[in-house]
């Protein structure tokens, strides 16, 4: 348990639990891209009966969950380079068509990771500028401008306990004003025209404690709920 956990005195969601909460809220029938990191975990925790088509930037539509070890196929991996499966009805395409789907506005939703998200929806997730950690933009800029909605899935703070939801991104931007919703290990927050609205918080967390690890001003929704781990 980190210092931040001790200070907050709450149980944070695990990475698969963050992915699960996002998966639960994906509208049925959506075409959804899962970015590198926590988002790709969503393929494994999709609620039973939910009919969504998962897109992978390397040229897959209809991504299914992780296969058992004996059924791994080196020609079938996702954006995180993890082994996946293809659901019935799924298909493969050339890389440039996978990005035509992205840029052309054909995806309803993209789930992305983040280094920082600003209160105005700015997203930074491709470089820290540190030469020891080469930058990696991947498909993030295409997804950020192409998908109809962007949800970010991230830890609420850095490993040092600093806010990742900030007033203004310090790192170079991926895209301006694109993030609509943030799922963290502490809360579910919507970015609205009136600012950040907290929809859900993990049990035991107060809005003041959440505000202490979040830079922009938070408002608590009247109908807010506990963010329960599935």
């Amino acid at each position: 348990m980190s210092v931040a956990d001790l200070e907050l005195g709450v149980t944070k969601l695990t990475r698969p639990q963050i992915a699960r909460r996002a998966a639960e809220l994906i509208p049925d029938g959506s075409f959804v891209n899962l970015g590198i990191g926590i988002p790709t975990l969503a393929a494994n925790v999709m609620p039973a009966g939910k009919d969504v088509v998962l897109h992978s930037e390397n040229g897959i539509l209809g991504v299914g969950p992780t296969p058992p070890e004996a059924e791994r196929d080196r020609d079938l991996i996702n954006a995180s380079k993890d082994y996946v499966t293809l659901l019935p009805g799924g298909s493969y395409c050339v890389h440039s068509d996978a990005f035509a789907m992205i840029r052309g506005g054909h995806l309803d939703l993209a789930l992305l990771g983040a280094f920082e998200v600003a209160g105005n929806g700015d997203l930074a997730n491709w470089t820290t500028g540190d030469r020891r950690f080469p930058p990696g933009v991947g498909g993030a800029m295409d997804l950020a401008v192409g998908a109809k909605a962007i949800w970010v899935l991230t830890d609420h703070t850095t490993k040092k306990g600093e806010p990742k939801i900030v007033n203004a991104c310090k790192y170079p931007l991926t895209a301006k004003g694109v993030v609509k919703r943030i799922f963290t290990d502490l809360a579910l927050i919507d970015l609205t025209e009136d600012g950040l609205l907290v929809r859900e918080m993990v049990p035991g967390l107060t809005i003041d404690a959440l505000q202490a690890v979040t830079e922009p001003k938070l408002a608590l929704a009247e109908d807010w709920q506990e963010l329960a781990a599935a």
Partner: peptide
């Protein structure tokens, strides 16, 4: 790659992935 990049021994042109294939 990381070691060569950190040492400045390789030039990197980073291109958004969809722009790369297009």
């Amino acid at each position: 790659f990381d070691a060569r990049y950190a040492a400045g021994e390789i030039e990197l042109e980073l291109v958004p992935q969809g722009t790369l294939s297009e």
